[in-house]
Design a protein around this nucleic acid. Structure first.
Length: 492
RNA sequence: CGGGGUGUAGCGUAGCCCGGUAUCGCGCCACAUUUGGGAUGUGGAGGUCGUAGGUUCGAAUCCUGCCACCCCGACCA
């Protein structure tokens, strides 16, 4: 059916690109590794952002904004953080251009305008934020400090992919400061729960909550908590992270507070973030060979109505009959487009809206009007139903909820079927090669073994699941004793 | 950054080896007939051939640099 979209089977990567480009989520730009987020894709991001922002505020956070540029001296203050990001930083060295004396109409960097101190385009904002917090925190009364920022960041990645890994991306980053370690850990876990709830309830994407191993940890963190999702090709994708930073940044930026007993101590910190990468996850997890399939709760457009008419008179009559339906849907909080544009035919519109993943389509023609029905088609299962006009808005509202649940269930079943417990190295390798997905296996707890497994199979430890069942076993590679299974997978 | 590939109208392409001013399809515009799964006919518009140089009487074509994109690696959210 689809003339434009490469099938998953044929070329999974190309399928993904086709969906993003032809689903009008984003476009390539003239800048290396940077994409243009198109209106439809940005509307999706706005919906996601709005839900998350509400959740952050409901858990006591406020928004602020910090500078894009970070002086190098601040950036290097927290050693591990600086080291971790150093090789992917864009650096501002000059503040002026001038006309090229040799080539008319061209500009060159003015060598006279070199900055005394280079400025780093933030790959993440801990440095500039903690430098600021130093001035804001003196007493336990100033704590906790619970701030989030919506921003763009830049990481000069070697190889970029639309939404999944772009040089510049949009995200939110929460940065909090607390009086005790316990409180900071509780915050870290709370925000992980916020993310998990959002991704599962709104994006209809089941996740596994866990903790990263040392080698996968955020640079500068004591612990990195994460949510991991599974894509349709069996690869895992890190959907969000929440870091317990201990006192590392407080020490690096000298942020101390007096407690109730007038004792001076460094504050405890967290940071947490999700990015436009989530859109990539959404696309890869749910869509099919006909195009995007978007979950109703965050779809830019939930319902499209396509009238089918012969001549202007019928077109007017159908519009007349359907306008109360449109009104009613809007009153129920449903976004709806009445697509009676005369420049394309119904079949074209059907295909177009399927490609863009609109959850519900209503088609209505003269034949339907006679019978007081409409044709309702759902994007997730592609089922078509003839439904009475009476109470149609409520029917659609219920259907949207059902689609949301169905999408989650389908993804959950797929995910659960792709968590395989293995006990030997052969089973492990075989599972990765033939089935993919998460592989649950014993590991001896060392970074060396983890690296060796990555070297041999490309699989990494995605996480040690929270509330993990404790059981004794033997490491699949070394045979050394282990107390719990961890989740391996090949990842994006 | 290493290996492989690509860049010609909005999209997909032919032409390149062997230099002589760009082919076809879709889309777009106008009109007509159409409209329940990507309509049909007739007429028409649209191109600094990624970009900057070089060779040449003449470059989409040959040479060099650069840029971007795709795939595979290393790196990474």
């Amino acid at each position: 059916m689809s003339k434009e979209i490469t099938s998953r089977q044929q070329d999974y990567s190309q399928w993904y690109n086709d969906l993003v480009l032809k689903g009008e989520l984003a476009d390539y730009s003239a800048v290396r590794g940077c994409m243009v987020i198109k209106p439809y894709g940005f509307a999706l991001w706005e919906n996601m952002r709005d839900v998350l922002d509400r959740k952050f505020k409901d858990t006591g956070h406020v928004n602020a904004y910090f500078p894009l540029l970070v002086p190098k001296s601040l950036f290097e203050a927290e050693e591990k953080n600086a080291e971790g990001f150093a090789k992917e930083c864009a650096v501002v060295t000059h503040y002026r251009l001038k006309t090229d004396p040799e080539k008319h109409g061209k500009l060159i960097v003015d060598p006279e305008a070199r900055l005394e101190e280079e400025l780093i385009i933030r790959p993440t904002s801990e440095a500039i934020i903690w430098n600021t917090y130093k001035g804001w925190i003196q007493s336990y009364r100033d704590l906790p400090l619970l701030i989030n920022q919506w921003a763009n960041v830049m990481r000069w990645e070697m190889r970029t992919r639309l939404f999944l890994r772009t040089a510049e991306f949009l995200w939110q980053e929460g940065h909090t400061a607390h009086a005790t370690s316990e409180e900071a850990v509780a915050e870290t876990v709370q925000m992980l729960d916020v993310y998990a709830d959002f991704v599962e309830q709104y994006m209809a994407l089941p996740v596994i909550k866990g903790v990263k191993t040392e080698s996968e940890r955020f640079a500068g963190a004591v612990d990195t908590y994460c949510i991991e999702a599974l894509m349709q090709d069996g690869k895992a994708l890190q959907a969000g992270t929440s870091h317990f930073l201990g006192q590392n940044f407080a020490k690096a930026f000298d942020v101390k507070f007096s407690d109730k007993n007038n004792k001076l101590d460094y504050v405890w910190a967290t940071s947490w973030g999700v990015s436009t990468r989530l859109i990539g996850a959404l696309v890869m997890a749910h869509s099919d060979d006909d195009g995007l399939i978007l979950p109703p709760k965050i779809a830019p457009l939930q319902v499209v109505i396509v009238p089918i008419y012969k001549g202007d008179e019928q077109r007017a009559i159908i519009k007349e009959v359907m306008s109360p339906v449109v009104k009613m849907l809007k009153e129920l909080g449903i976004s709806v487009k009445y697509d009676d544009a005369d420049n394309s035919r119904p079949g074209w519109k059907f295909a177009e809206h399927e490609k863009k993943g609109v959850p519900v389509r209503i088609a209505v023609g003269a034949r339907d009007l006679e019978n007081n029905v409409v044709e309702v088609a759902r994007r997730d299962t592609k089922e078509k139903m003839s439904v009475s006009m009476d109470g149609i808005a409520y029917y659609v509202k219920t259907l949207l909820d059902e689609i949301q649940l169905n999408m989650f269930e389908k993804a959950r079943i797929y995910r659960d079927e792709h968590i395989t417990k293995v006990n030997t190295w052969d089973e492990f390798v075989n599972t990765l090669e033939t089935k993919a997905g998460f592989v649950s296996a014993h590991w001896d707890g060392t970074a060396e073994t983890e690296a060796a497994i990555k070297e041999k199979t490309k699989a990494t430890i995605r996480c040690i699941p929270l509330n993990n069942e404790q059981e004794s076993g033997k490491c699949i590679l070394t045979g050394k004793p282990s107390t719990q299974r961890v989740l391996f997978a090949q990842a994006y």
